[in-house]
Protein backbone atom coordinates (compact mmCIF):
# COMPACT_ATOMS: atom_id res chain seq x y z
CA UNK A 1 0.00 0.00 0.00
CA UNK A 2 1.18 3.51 -0.74
CA UNK A 3 0.17 5.84 2.06
CA UNK A 4 0.79 9.56 1.85
CA UNK A 5 0.76 11.71 4.97
CA UNK A 6 0.22 15.47 4.91
CA UNK A 7 2.46 17.03 7.53
CA UNK A 8 2.65 20.63 8.62
CA UNK A 9 5.44 22.26 10.56
CA UNK A 10 3.94 24.77 12.97
CA UNK A 11 4.87 27.21 15.69
CA UNK A 12 4.78 25.42 19.02
CA UNK A 13 1.86 27.24 20.62
CA UNK A 14 3.34 26.37 24.01
CA UNK A 15 6.20 28.71 23.25
CA UNK A 16 5.98 32.36 24.07
CA UNK A 17 3.98 34.13 21.41
CA UNK A 18 5.58 37.55 21.51
CA UNK A 19 4.79 40.56 19.37
CA UNK A 20 7.46 43.14 18.68
CA UNK A 21 6.94 46.91 18.63
CA UNK A 22 5.60 46.78 15.07
CA UNK A 23 2.94 44.36 16.31
CA UNK A 24 4.57 41.58 14.28
CA UNK A 25 5.15 38.10 15.64
CA UNK A 26 8.71 37.74 16.93
CA UNK A 27 9.76 34.47 15.31
CA UNK A 28 13.11 34.33 17.12
CA UNK A 29 11.27 33.39 20.31
CA UNK A 30 9.44 30.54 18.69
CA UNK A 31 9.99 26.79 18.54
CA UNK A 32 8.92 24.78 15.49
CA UNK A 33 7.29 21.40 15.78
CA UNK A 34 5.13 18.99 13.80
CA UNK A 35 1.41 19.73 14.09
CA UNK A 36 0.08 17.50 16.86
CA UNK A 37 -2.68 15.91 14.77
CA UNK A 38 -0.26 15.12 11.93
CA UNK A 39 1.71 12.96 14.36
CA UNK A 40 -1.37 10.80 14.83
CA UNK A 41 -1.77 10.60 11.06
CA UNK A 42 1.83 9.53 10.57
CA UNK A 43 1.61 6.93 13.32
CA UNK A 44 -1.55 5.52 11.73
CA UNK A 45 0.15 5.36 8.33
CA UNK A 46 3.11 3.48 9.77
CA UNK A 47 0.83 1.00 11.51
CA UNK A 48 -0.99 0.35 8.23
CA UNK A 49 2.33 -0.17 6.50
CA UNK A 50 3.36 -2.59 9.24
CA UNK A 51 0.12 -4.48 8.68
CA UNK A 52 -0.02 -4.54 4.87
CA UNK A 53 3.46 -3.65 3.70
CA UNK A 54 4.15 -0.77 1.37
CA UNK A 55 5.43 2.74 1.63
CA UNK A 56 4.76 5.82 3.75
CA UNK A 57 5.51 9.13 2.06
CA UNK A 58 5.29 12.51 3.79
CA UNK A 59 4.14 15.58 1.88
CA UNK A 60 4.79 18.97 3.39
CA UNK A 61 4.72 22.61 2.32
CA UNK A 62 7.32 24.64 4.18
CA UNK A 63 10.74 26.19 3.84
CA UNK A 64 14.42 25.39 4.46
CA UNK A 65 13.90 25.08 8.19
CA UNK A 66 11.20 22.44 7.69
CA UNK A 67 13.84 19.93 6.57
CA UNK A 68 15.03 19.51 10.18
CA UNK A 69 11.54 18.85 11.48
CA UNK A 70 10.92 16.33 8.72
CA UNK A 71 14.24 14.58 9.38
CA UNK A 72 13.14 14.11 12.96
CA UNK A 73 9.60 12.96 12.30
CA UNK A 74 10.57 10.57 9.51
CA UNK A 75 12.44 8.58 12.12
CA UNK A 76 9.08 7.30 13.28
CA UNK A 77 9.17 5.11 10.18
CA UNK A 78 8.38 7.05 7.02
CA UNK A 79 10.16 5.97 3.83
CA UNK A 80 10.57 9.28 2.10
CA UNK A 81 9.29 12.82 2.03
CA UNK A 82 8.48 15.52 -0.46
CA UNK A 83 9.07 19.02 0.88
CA UNK A 84 7.70 21.79 -1.29
CA UNK A 85 9.25 25.12 -0.54
CA UNK A 86 6.83 28.02 -0.76
CA UNK A 87 6.20 31.36 0.86
CA UNK A 88 2.48 30.75 0.50
CA UNK A 89 0.68 29.75 3.68
CA UNK A 90 -3.02 30.26 2.89
CA UNK A 91 -5.05 27.06 2.93
CA UNK A 92 -6.13 27.24 -0.71
CA UNK A 93 -2.60 27.69 -2.07
CA UNK A 94 -1.12 25.01 0.19
CA UNK A 95 -3.85 22.56 -0.82
CA UNK A 96 -3.33 23.18 -4.52
CA UNK A 97 0.44 22.86 -4.19
CA UNK A 98 0.10 19.54 -2.35
CA UNK A 99 -2.44 18.15 -4.79
CA UNK A 100 -0.34 19.14 -7.78
CA UNK A 101 2.81 17.47 -6.43
CA UNK A 102 0.89 14.36 -5.40
CA UNK A 103 -0.56 14.08 -8.89
CA UNK A 104 2.89 14.43 -10.42
CA UNK A 105 4.86 12.18 -8.10
CA UNK A 106 2.59 9.71 -6.34
CA UNK A 107 -0.66 9.65 -8.28
CA UNK A 108 -1.00 5.92 -7.58
CA UNK A 109 -1.51 6.44 -3.83
CA UNK A 110 -3.93 4.17 -1.99
CA UNK A 111 -4.58 6.39 0.98
CA UNK A 112 -3.81 9.88 2.17
CA UNK A 113 -3.86 10.57 5.89
CA UNK A 114 -3.74 13.97 7.60
CA UNK A 115 -4.39 15.57 10.94
CA UNK A 116 -7.85 17.08 10.86
CA UNK A 117 -6.77 20.56 11.93
CA UNK A 118 -3.60 22.56 12.51
CA UNK A 119 -3.39 23.88 16.03
CA UNK A 120 -1.50 26.98 14.97
CA UNK A 121 -4.08 28.49 12.64
CA UNK A 122 -7.11 26.43 13.65
CA UNK A 123 -8.38 26.23 10.03
CA UNK A 124 -9.11 22.59 9.18
CA UNK A 125 -9.33 23.25 5.44
CA UNK A 126 -6.40 21.67 3.65
CA UNK A 127 -7.42 17.99 3.76
CA UNK A 128 -10.95 18.66 2.46
CA UNK A 129 -9.58 20.88 -0.28
CA UNK A 130 -6.93 18.36 -1.31
CA UNK A 131 -9.57 15.61 -1.51
CA UNK A 132 -11.65 17.88 -3.75
CA UNK A 133 -8.78 18.58 -6.17
CA UNK A 134 -7.72 14.92 -6.27
CA UNK A 135 -11.36 13.83 -6.53
CA UNK A 136 -11.22 11.16 -3.86
CA UNK A 137 -13.71 10.52 -1.07
CA UNK A 138 -13.07 12.39 2.15
CA UNK A 139 -13.74 11.21 5.70
CA UNK A 140 -13.09 13.82 8.37
CA UNK A 141 -12.16 13.49 12.06
CA UNK A 142 -11.79 9.75 12.36
CA UNK A 143 -10.93 7.83 15.51
CA UNK A 144 -10.61 4.36 14.05
CA UNK A 145 -9.52 2.96 10.69
CA UNK A 146 -9.95 -0.62 9.53
CA UNK A 147 -8.85 -1.66 6.03
CA UNK A 148 -10.29 -4.64 4.22
CA UNK A 149 -9.03 -4.92 0.67
CA UNK A 150 -10.32 -1.85 -1.14
CA UNK A 151 -12.75 -0.83 1.58
CA UNK A 152 -11.82 1.32 4.55
CA UNK A 153 -14.19 1.30 7.52
CA UNK A 154 -13.85 4.44 9.61
CA UNK A 155 -15.34 5.49 12.89
CA UNK A 156 -15.98 9.17 12.50
CA UNK A 157 -16.70 11.67 15.21
CA UNK A 158 -20.22 12.95 14.55
CA UNK A 159 -22.49 15.42 16.30
CA UNK A 160 -24.47 13.47 18.81
CA UNK A 161 -23.31 10.11 17.61
CA UNK A 162 -20.22 8.60 16.01
CA UNK A 163 -20.71 7.21 12.53
CA UNK A 164 -19.34 4.13 10.86
CA UNK A 165 -18.40 5.05 7.31
CA UNK A 166 -17.18 2.83 4.51
CA UNK A 167 -15.20 4.36 1.68
CA UNK A 168 -13.40 2.83 -1.25
CA UNK A 169 -9.70 3.40 -1.77
CA UNK A 170 -8.14 5.66 -2.90
CA UNK A 171 -9.42 8.04 -0.25
CA UNK A 172 -8.33 10.87 2.04
CA UNK A 173 -8.97 10.48 5.75
CA UNK A 174 -8.21 12.90 8.59
CA UNK A 175 -7.51 11.65 12.06
CA UNK A 176 -8.53 12.83 15.49
CA UNK A 177 -6.69 12.51 18.76
CA UNK A 178 -7.40 9.18 20.36
CA UNK A 179 -6.93 7.12 17.20
CA UNK A 180 -3.56 5.90 18.43
CA UNK A 181 -0.54 6.69 20.60
CA UNK A 182 2.28 7.94 18.38
CA UNK A 183 5.57 6.18 18.90
CA UNK A 184 8.68 8.15 19.66
CA UNK A 185 11.01 8.56 16.69
CA UNK A 186 13.66 5.88 16.85
CA UNK A 187 16.74 7.28 18.55
CA UNK A 188 19.00 5.17 16.36
CA UNK A 189 17.29 6.51 13.29
CA UNK A 190 17.64 10.12 14.43
CA UNK A 191 21.32 9.64 15.21
CA UNK A 192 21.87 7.99 11.87
CA UNK A 193 23.58 10.64 9.84
CA UNK A 194 22.70 9.29 6.46
CA UNK A 195 20.43 11.76 4.78
CA UNK A 196 16.79 10.85 4.96
CA UNK A 197 15.16 10.67 1.60
CA UNK A 198 13.67 14.15 1.42
CA UNK A 199 12.97 15.47 -2.04
CA UNK A 200 12.92 19.25 -2.07
CA UNK A 201 10.80 21.02 -4.63
CA UNK A 202 10.65 24.74 -5.26
CA UNK A 203 7.14 25.97 -5.89
CA UNK A 204 6.47 28.74 -8.34
CA UNK A 205 3.42 30.78 -7.38
CA UNK A 206 1.06 30.83 -10.31
CA UNK A 207 -2.17 31.66 -8.52
CA UNK A 208 -4.25 34.53 -9.77
CA UNK A 209 -6.93 34.46 -7.10
CA UNK A 210 -7.28 37.74 -5.28
CA UNK A 211 -6.46 37.12 -1.64
CA UNK A 212 -7.84 38.68 1.52
CA UNK A 213 -5.70 41.13 3.48
CA UNK A 214 -4.58 39.53 6.72
CA UNK A 215 -3.17 41.03 9.90
CA UNK A 216 -2.18 39.20 13.09
CA UNK A 217 -2.46 41.02 16.39
CA UNK A 218 -1.96 40.03 19.98
CA UNK A 219 -5.15 39.02 21.76
CA UNK A 220 -6.20 41.39 24.54
CA UNK A 221 -6.21 40.09 28.07
CA UNK A 222 -9.33 39.89 30.17
CA UNK A 223 -9.94 42.77 32.58
CA UNK A 224 -9.14 42.40 36.26
CA UNK A 225 -10.43 39.34 38.10
CA UNK A 226 -12.83 39.74 41.02
CA UNK A 227 -11.22 37.45 43.57
CA UNK A 228 -12.98 35.96 46.56
CA UNK A 229 -10.58 34.66 49.18
CA UNK A 230 -13.07 33.85 51.93
CA UNK A 231 -12.56 30.77 54.08
CA UNK A 232 -16.25 30.26 54.83
CA UNK A 233 -17.67 28.66 51.65
CA UNK A 234 -21.22 29.86 52.40
CA UNK A 235 -19.97 33.42 52.61
CA UNK A 236 -17.78 33.00 49.54
CA UNK A 237 -20.70 31.86 47.41
CA UNK A 238 -22.89 34.64 48.80
CA UNK A 239 -20.27 37.20 47.78
CA UNK A 240 -20.03 35.71 44.30
CA UNK A 241 -23.79 35.70 43.76
CA UNK A 242 -24.09 39.27 45.00
CA UNK A 243 -21.37 40.51 42.64
CA UNK A 244 -22.66 38.62 39.64
CA UNK A 245 -26.20 39.87 40.14
CA UNK A 246 -24.87 43.43 40.51
CA UNK A 247 -22.85 42.96 37.31
CA UNK A 248 -25.98 41.58 35.63
CA UNK A 249 -24.23 38.33 34.80
CA UNK A 250 -26.99 36.33 36.52
Amino acid sequence: MKILVLVKEIIDTNSKIVFNKQKKLDESQVKWVVNLYDEYALEEAIRIKEQFGGEVVIYSVGNDRTKDTLNYIMSMGADRAVLIKSELTDAKSVSEILAKQIREKDADFDLILAGWIGIDWNRGQVPGRVSSVLEVPFVNVVIDIDINGKIVTCEKEGESSNEIIDVQLPALITVQRGINEPRYPSVLSIMDNTEKKIEIVDNIDQSTTKKAIIKIEPEKNRKKTYMINESDPELAVKMLMKKMIADKVM
Partner: peptide
Protein backbone atom coordinates in the same frame (compact mmCIF):
# COMPACT_ATOMS: atom_id res chain seq x y z
CA UNK B 1 -18.98 26.26 12.54
CA UNK B 2 -20.34 22.83 13.39
CA UNK B 3 -19.37 19.19 13.13
CA UNK B 4 -21.39 18.98 9.90
CA UNK B 5 -19.96 22.05 8.20
CA UNK B 6 -16.34 21.16 8.91
CA UNK B 7 -16.76 18.25 6.49
CA UNK B 8 -18.34 20.09 3.58
CA UNK B 9 -17.12 23.68 3.86
CA UNK B 10 -13.54 23.15 2.64
CA UNK B 11 -14.81 21.15 -0.33
CA UNK B 12 -17.33 23.88 -1.19
CA UNK B 13 -14.63 26.54 -1.04
CA UNK B 14 -12.32 24.52 -3.27
CA UNK B 15 -15.05 23.77 -5.82
CA UNK B 16 -15.78 27.49 -6.03
CA UNK B 17 -12.08 28.34 -6.13
CA UNK B 18 -12.44 30.77 -3.21
CA UNK B 19 -10.85 31.43 0.16
CA UNK B 20 -12.43 30.21 3.37
CA UNK B 21 -12.18 31.48 6.93
CA UNK B 22 -13.39 29.27 9.73
CA UNK B 23 -14.48 29.82 13.31
Amino acid sequence: NTVKSRDSAPMIAQKLDIEMFSD
